[in-house]
Amino acid sequence: MNRTRSTTENRLTQASLIAAALAFLAFFLLLPLIAVFSEALEQGFGAFADAVNNPDALAAIRLTLLIAMISVPLNIVFGIAASWAITKFSFPGKSLLITLIDLPFSVSPVVSGLIFVLLFGAHGLLGPWLAEHDVKIIFAVPGIVLATVFITFPFVARELIPLMMEQGKDDEEAAVSLGANGWQTFWHVTLPNIRWGLLYGVLLCNARAMGEFGAVSVVSGHIRGETNTMPLHVEILYNEYDFVGAFAVASLLALLALVTLVARSVLEWRFDLHHEGARH
C-alpha cells in the first residue's frame, strides 16, 4: 500500500467511488436478500414454521435433497475423470473437449429441460418405446435428475481443471516411478492437493442442483408432493398468493446460498494458506 499520489486517487474520489459501489450492491444484492427473510417472517415465526412444516413443503424438501444426492456425486466422478484426462495427458482436441464441457453454461435452462422432453416425452423420440415398457422419465424423478445433471455438468470440472493444470504432474509421476499404482497415486497424491478446490466445486454444484428452476420446471410436471422441488414449490405458493409460504420456503434456499457463500470465503482463505504452505 505504498502507492504514490500519482498512481492512486485522492481520498475524496476514493470515498465516493467506494460509496457508489456499496450503494449499488446494497440496492441490487443486499436488499433482495433481506426482503426474502423479512417477507418470510412478516406474520411471525409461527406462520413461518407452519409454512415449512406443511406436508407438500416437506415433500419438496425431501425431493430436492434426493435430486442433489443423486446428481452431485455423478458430477464429482465425471469432474475428476475429465480433469485427470485433460490435465495429466496431452492429446489432440483437448480444447474442444473443454469447450464442450462448458456447453451447458451457454444453454438456456428452459432449453436444457426441453431437450429431455423431446427425447423422452410422450411425443418424444423415445417416448413410444418408454411407454411400451412402462418407464416414466418426463414428469417423474428421473427427468428431474437428468435435467439437473445437465445443468450442473461443468461445475466440478471447471473448478478442478485450472487447479490441476497449475499443479502439473510431477508429484504423480514421482509416485508412479516409486511404484504406486493409479488408484494409490490419485488417493494419496492428487486428492490431497485438490481437496479444497474439489470441495468448492461440489458446493457450487450442490447450490445449483438444489436451486435449479427453469430446466426442472419444464420436465417436472409440477405434481404436488411428487415432482415438486423446493424452487417449484416456491413458484406454486407465490402464484396462489400464499406469500408467507412462498417466502418461507424461499428463505430456506436463501440460507443454503448464504452457507455456500460463507464456505466459499472460508475455503478461499484455506486455499491461500495452502498455497503459502506449499511455497515454503
Binding site: 436451486g211 424461499a250 457463500l261
Partner: peptide, 23 residues
C-alpha cells in the same frame, strides 16, 4: 462485500425473482 458479489451465483433464480418482485 466480496463474498456478497457471488450471491447471484448461489441464490436460486426463483428466490431472486420473487424477492425482486416484492421490492
Amino acid at each position: 462485500v466480496s463474498a456478497l458479489v457471488d450471491l447471484p451465483f448461489a441464490l436460486p433464480t426463483a428466490v431472486a425473482g420473487i424477492a425482486l418482485t416484492a421490492l
